[in-house]
Write a protein that binds this DNA or RNA. Structure first.
Lengths: 344, 344
DNA sequence: CCTGCACCTGACAACGTTGTCCAGGCCCTA
DNA sequence: TAGGGCCTGGACAACGTTGTCAGGTGCAGG
């Protein structure tokens, strides 16, 4: 009796189960399951009775139990660096859209560029048994994911390559993009060009630096070590780096900014400067058009979409060797990259 | 024998379970559970054997089963409008940080401003048995969540109030903010001020329009219906609205933009216009400082943090009546809002 | 009237974990 | 040496669902 009350009341914190629905509808447990899942083999009359019981009790299937039984969670995990970074918003949204098209939910977490936190997050997602995992690497060693991948969790890395592990990778051509951007500055007459990028352990940062070097070498231009600065993208650090390059003994007449964070701070810093300095930034930025900032734009949404599509192809049984997909960023000239050299 | 092989091999798609670990370590199932959960009552020697077996098999606890047993998922759901909108990135990140501090993961989804999709998403999250739900409403009727809340899923609404349901709400003072922004324009001499906002079914949109009316009335200024435009924030619509107001028979000398999307398009449109038009926008925007855009800034991260903290307080057993928390946005003068009236 | 068949329906086990409870072994004390 | 308490470890049920399989009913055909 007491148990009965517990079962049927709408008391706080109590969830009706299929068993309760079955009891109320006067049918078997399995019949409820059939109705809930739209399986065939239920008379219209029985179905109606079950539906009424579901309605009356406010029943909602417990997907945890379902997952346990079926083995698939219909959810994928996304580990990125920072959800608040305007670069990752569209990427995340694109992943979500693809997941939605496949009936899956998205669980995401920010690593804050900390390898330990990346691992902790990725493994937590695996423990949840997400069907697949999309990772924007913070660390450089992903062997910890090997057992997970072996166990069947499809995994795709985005934006940066995986470390010490063979897996799908989707990224932008950082090297080529930076090379093109710096070449653009060279073409507009610059010979002393500075490069400010993210921390050297981040793959895209060193690739873009490599692109810078290649472009300078292509043009036969010397590179002063003082013209290069890799490090955290905190505004203070970037501001100091910009100021040092622009006012140093061999002042640069142009700057290449390694990512959107750097570009933003560089623009702010240069705005307070009297001598015009040319600027090309990696990553597009909202309102860059109004500010006339020339950029190498990568398509964050396309990165996310491509990665997610690849992931779901694997989940659908496609079992090719891991591949590396590289998207080509495009240069958008808006003014700041076309400023001619102004020597000090 | 075959079963044994299935159990112990590292074959693709096979997951070792606690049972497998127990067999390998030569202990009971529950002992493995104890080790995995750091429960007391296991000799160091036994613990070592279990750890070795876990390592060797690459065991990872199946949280789905754990959830089923324990009833708590240690995850919360966030339904927002668009993860790609720069306003929601920081909000989402703030929620994530609070969740992380409480050991919970974040599942989020975008409603794309579609009430049906909002409901579908929210209910899917409930079926997953998230412990709590944070919703940025797209729809105006949330009675569908009543059984869920009764069943114990803590729910907090953010940015916009819940409809037809009594629940916690955290939002910015849209009315007051808009009123202050419009008053600012009035104080700078404007008498013909336009208002462009989001669709009227969105609460913040109508609240801000109300603030506009209040400020105009406070100043004893008449309002021409042609100076108000509510509708989708698609660039074309906003562009046309701006153009119409600025070039109409009673051209406005100042504009109030109802949110960040509107502001961006308004700035772009006004940039191609000869006569200076003053502008104040609701929501801060990256690089608005460089473009000199005066805004009413709300703190998206604070909204998310406040909501998440409230959610977890409920999860920790706090059982007060639902409350409404209102954050005060601040005016940041940067130039565009201080332009004096220029008549046509 | 019986057989065969199609169609519904429900009993039961299983998914992998945790909570409960009890058994056995050890040490300490009387 | 016997008795009692403590510590360790394991057997078992339960969480809520789905897959398997067998039983039951009704109808048509022989």
């Amino acid at each position: 009796m007491a148990d009965n009350a517990r079962r049927t009341d709408h008391r706080y914190g109590i969830r009706p189960t299929m068993k309760d629905v079955a009891a109320r509808a006067g049918v078997g447990l399995k019949t409820v399951s059939r109705v809930v899942n739209g399986e065939p083999g239920v008379t219209p009359d029985t179905e109606r009775r079950v539906q009424e019981a579901i309605e009356a009790l406010g029943f909602r299937r417990n997907d945890s139990a379902r997952v346990l039984r079926k083995g698939r969670t219909a959810s994928i995990g996304l580990v990125l660096e920072d959800l608040a970074d305007p670069f990752y918003g569209p990427l995340s949204r694109a992943v979500e859209e693809v997941a939605r098209a496949h009936g899956a939910l998205l669980i995401n977490g920010s690593s804050a560029e900390d390898p330990d936190r990346e691992q902790e997050l990725a493994l937590a997602l695996c423990a949840r048994r997400v069907d697949g995992l999309i990772v924007i690497p913070a660390g450089t060693d992903h062997r910890y994911l090997e057992p997970e991948i072996k166990a069947g969790i499809a995994t795709v890395f985005v934006d940066r390559p995986a470390g010490r592990i063979d897996a799908d990778v989707v990224l932008s051509d950082s090297f080529g993009g930076a090379r093109e951007g710096v070449a653009h500055l060279v073409a507009h007459g610059h010979r002393r060009i500075g490069f400010i990028g993210d921390q050297p352990r981040i793959h895209t940062a060193t690739e873009r630096l490599r692109g810078y070097h290649a472009a300078m070498e292509d043009a036969g231009l010397p590179v002063d070590p003082a013209w290069m600065s890799l490090g955290p993208t905190a505004p203070e650090r970037v501001r100091d780096a910009v100021t040092a390059m622009v006012t140093g003994p061999q002042p640069v007449t142009a700057l290449f900014a390694g990512n959107n964070r750097v570009t933003v701070t560089a623009v702010r810093t240069l705005a307070g400067h009297q001598r015009p300095v040319a600027l090309v930034g990696f990553d597009d930025i909202e309102l860059a058009d109004l500010l006339g900032i020339t950029v190498i734009a990568q398509d964050a949404a396309a990165l996310g979409r491509t990665a997610a599509e690849r992931l779901f192809r694997r989940l659908d049984g496609f079992d090719d060797a891991p591949a590396r997909v590289e998207l080509t960023p495009v240069l958008i000239a808006r003014g700041s990259g076309e400023i001619p050299p102004h020597d000090a």
